[in-house]
């Protein structure tokens, strides 16, 4: 998995791409550190480029949400498609994550 962070007025956007699996846990830790350090109050995770997420990936996304909120920021998740969208839907994560198209 790879990620790219862009800063906008009041918004930090992190675009994930590739496959999100357990082996990406250290990269996700770096992402959490970078998002926590960003000045904007709102964070958007864009999953358009994410092809696959396994169960540990889901766990990591939930941890990202916790870490971001602990820094008094808000988070939404956008652009999930294919297998990623199916997993998020079956897991009913719309109740936990702010899922947007």
């Amino acid at each position: 998995m790879d990620y790219r962070i862009t800063q906008g007025p009041g918004l930090t956007e992190a675009a994930l791409s590739g496959r999100l699996t357990f082996n990406d846990y250290e990269k996700m830790r770096l992402l959490m550190r970078d998002l926590g350090a960003a000045p904007a109050r709102h964070v958007t995770l864009r999953l358009d480029g994410l092809e696959f997420v396994d169960s540990s990936g889901i766990g990591m996304l939930l941890i990202v949400k916790e870490e971001v909120e602990q820094k008094d920021k808000t988070l939404d998740v956008r652009g999930a498609t294919g297998q990623v969208l199916r997993v998020l839907t079956v897991a009913d994560l719309g109740k936990v994550l702010d899922l947007r198209p």
């Binding site: 540990s56 939930l62 941890i63």
Partner: peptide, 15 residues
Amino acid sequence: VNNIIQLSKQGMSMV
């Protein structure tokens, strides 16, 4: 499903 999600999250937290 909820248990799997929680297990995954707690597992990663433990890691």
